[in-house]
Amino acid sequence: MKAFTKLDARMAPLTMANIDTDQIIPKQFLKTVEREGLGKGLFYDFRFDEQGVEKADFVLNRAEYKGAGVLVAGDNFGCGSSREHAPWALLDFGISCVISSSFADIFYNNCFQNGLLPVVLKPEEVQALMEEAKGGNHVVTVDLEAQTVVSPSGAAFSFQIDPQRKAKMLQGLDAIGETLTAAMDIDVYESKRALSEPWLERA
């Protein structure tokens, strides 16, 4: 899992509330054998029409939001099915932080498994960010260590996060990452076993 420390990136405003994981990544993209490459299906029905032609007016298709790394979204983001493909798709598209006034539970959990930072701000703060995002300047700073979001105009908002989750996110530690902090123990264990049970060592 990639660590999340501090991010300076363009933010894209997605004003709708209750965006569910089916909208984030529709079911036809779930048959894949990969976690990568799901970005192409992100918000598919918002981004493309029935003929597969880009809808020019959708926020992520507009020139000023191309390459956005932060999504500012309406309330209850990520509701619906538990598919982990939703955070996978956002990350693959280049979005590593979503700001909203609330998130659905499972989606929120899944974010932490994958290094996507979900930031909860007060509704009026989210509103203020959206207004700024609609203006000319879109670069926002998200600082996980300091637990702050600094808007393009310099307004600073602080947010809450579980300290253990924060620590793991800062170091990019998932379950595998956590186990790998014991890598030395594993090395030592392996070398002992190589001596006591040498027949298990295959050339």
Partner: peptide, 14 residues
Amino acid sequence: VVAEQDGEAILYID
């Protein structure tokens, strides 16, 4: 058992 972390064992797999 290689080590213990957060109340879980890290179990080596052969």
